[in-house]
Amino acid sequence: MGNAISVQDLHFSYPPQNGGAPYPVFDGLDVNIEEGSFVAVLGHNGSGKSTLAKHCNAILLPEGGSVQVFGMDTADEAQLLEIRRTVGMVFQNPDNQMVANVVEEDVAFAPENLGVPSEEIRKRVDDALKTVGMYDYRSHAPHLLSGGQKQRIAIAGVIAMQPRCIVLDEPTAMLDPHGREDVIRTIETLNRENGITVVLITHHMTEAIRADRVIVMQEGRILTDGTPKEVFTQVELLRSAGLEVPATTQIIYELNKAGLSLPLDALSTEECAHVLYETLKT
């Protein structure tokens, strides 16, 4: 399959504030996201991950190099709407991305903007709400819902555009563990069952484990890139970038340092428990 997003030699810096020098973010970044994949992007604050997200649907435009989404150049203004329709975006704070005070009206916002006929909007809204499991709440006021529910409404609002790729910028940062799990499960369903390419920017290692591929960023560059197992076994490298490793890796890493030799790539809780169980038995 081809690339959903292809970033080539990206240069970008934020304009100077208060007369200072411009703040450079990217100085020649290359990254490709394969169509249909589930990619997690990790990195410390200021590593450029949100800035990268905003390049994916032409909210920000490259100063040098290019960003292509499904073969469309984001700098091409004639294709702006098509680019934004193809690559949907979900942000951190669900409150600040809702437009209407009824759930279904909010989900309908994007198709309304695209000029979709009324009956078709109705169908898309119902489908989107069923996909995220919020159909029963369609006539509720958003401000009465929990954070996780609001974030799922925001995701529904994006999939009503029928995008081929969704970029989520720390969608779970403001949620409680329960809401976080609901949102991540929804994202997984979208990827596995609807074949939508997912780029998940996150702080939570437990979420990154569930992706097909993990990209770790530091100061606008890619520090390491690979499957979760490949990435999280590089414990020293991640720590030097100021990142945590998953609790499971942490346990095994510490045990290994104490003299055991366990496989570091037992990432999920079940795998880790199994490895420990086997060790304790002998």
């Binding site: 329709r85 949907g88 916002f109």
Partner: peptide, 9 residues
Amino acid sequence: TAMECRCYH
């Protein structure tokens, strides 16, 4: 920004 992302024009 969120409105622009949802194709508001």
